[in-house]
Nucleic acid binder design. Structure first.
Length: 107
DNA sequence: CTGTTGACTGTCG
DNA sequence: GCGACAGCCAACA
């Protein structure tokens, strides 16, 4: 990481999320610098390239808060279910078990 | 340049 | 347990 590009780091971390796992905006923000920048993560993902699996990133309660930004309303849920993640009522089931911590995995 | 908004989170009542 | 308020920073009108 030559330059501390917040956006680039977000893309980098999100891209490394294993299939079938999810994380939260706050966790990524905290891993990068400050938890307050969680909104910036969302903003970054708004402009995120298709290479970034933004559908694996949800809010702290495991709810698909960003699904409305996807082309289809259930596209995000479909993608998650396709990876083996159970989603119901826009909320990830067994979220804590599927949670992926970059600070723990990437160290 | 000023003001509002946003894929969030934590704290307070 | 739930609703409301504040903080943070960047993009957009």
């Amino acid at each position: 990481m030559t330059n501390s590009n917040f956006y680039q780091k977000v893309y980098d971390v999100v891209s490394q999320i294993p299939e079938g796992n999810v994380t939260t905006y706050g966790t990524i923000a905290k891993y990068l610098s400050s938890p307050q920048s969680s909104r910036m993560v969302g903003w970054a993902l708004n402009k995120s390239p298709e290479d970034v699996p933004a559908h694996r990133v949800v809010n702290r309660i495991g709810m698909l808060s960003g699904k409305i930004h996807f082309s289809g309303i259930n596209l995000m849920q479909q993608l998650l279910e396709n990876e083996g993640i159970i989603v119901e009522n826009n909320q990830i089931i067994d979220f804590e078990n599927l949670f992926w911590d970059p600070k723990k995995e990437l160290n």
